[in-house]
Computed example of a mutant assay.
Amino acid sequence: MNKVYHILSLLGLSHTSDAVRKMFLHLAQCSFTGFPNLLKTAKAKIEAIKQAREPTAESMIRTQFKMEMLVYSQDRMYSSSLSDRKKEMTEEEGRESPQLSVSFVFHSNNNTTLQELMLHLKSYYKIASQRLADQIPLVIRYQMLQESAVQLQSEMLQMLHDKENLEFFLKEDMDIGSKRAALQSRHKRLMKARTYLVEF
């Protein structure tokens, strides 16, 4: 496959990885407001997961492109693609295309024209392109979104089961503690005033 597609796939991986990271960070920020230690730890885990998952996804993408170098397709799929290319050629040229052999094995008495070779190449290119168009986004989505989310959830739950550090993680921001104390004090005063008014 063309190196351009390979580069575009890796760029897509990078953009998706950054987008997922931003989404996770935003979610952590919204969920752990008031718990600075928990938020800081969650952010560190998000970064670590991104750093671990991205090379795995990249390796899978590179493997996918390497596999395409094998030039493989199921016979029925290839025959269908070849038939489609023949129809397109017939429509473009306004004439019947010659009968083509699906096999790449040519004997001395079976000369192949350049036109026939082009049809074979276009047929396979169409199949391989579609396969990559399906597989590459699937790899990126699986590794960078699904697996990252599962890993993050697992690590966060494991962290909250760490009884030794649980108090540290759940330690509130000083401002929130002060605001709560002020609100509780105000609530007590209001309840006391209400009691006086009821008795009056």
Rank of each mutant, 00 (worst) to 15 (best):
R95H: 08
M60W: 03
M156Y: 07
L82M: 15
G34I: 00
Q146G: 00
A57W: 05
R21Q: 15
R180V: 10
A133I: 12
S97N: 03
L160I: 12
L121H: 08
Y5N: 11
D18I: 09
E88I: 05
H187F: 07
L13A: 04
G94L: 10
Q115W: 07
M60P: 00
E116F: 01
L11T: 04
Q135T: 10
H15V: 14
Y5E: 08
N111C: 01
N165Y: 05
K43N: 14
S154F: 06
H107T: 12
L11N: 05
V102M: 09
M118Q: 11
R131T: 14
M118G: 01
N165P: 02
Y5D: 10
H26P: 00
A181H: 10
S148K: 05
R62Q: 12
Q115V: 00
V20F: 01
M174P: 11
E155C: 02
S97Y: 05
N37V: 04
S154Q: 10
S83D: 07
M60V: 05
T63R: 15
D18Y: 10
K86C: 06
L152R: 02
S17Q: 04
L39V: 01
L119M: 15
S154T: 10
N109P: 00
V150Q: 13
K40R: 13
Y125T: 14
E199H: 12
S108W: 08
G12P: 03
T16K: 13
R141K: 15
Y78I: 07
I49E: 06
R21F: 13
Q130K: 12
S129A: 11
R186C: 04
A128V: 15
R76D: 07
L166R: 11
A182E: 08
G34K: 09
I61N: 00
K43S: 14
K66F: 06
Q64E: 15
S103V: 01
S154C: 05
Y124M: 15
L82V: 05
I140E: 00
D134E: 03
N109H: 15
G12Y: 08
S80A: 10
H120F: 01
K126G: 02
D175T: 04
A57D: 00
I136F: 01
D173Q: 12
M89L: 14
Q115E: 12
K87Y: 05
N165I: 04
Y142K: 15
S185M: 09
S185F: 03
E58F: 07
K43L: 03
K188E: 12
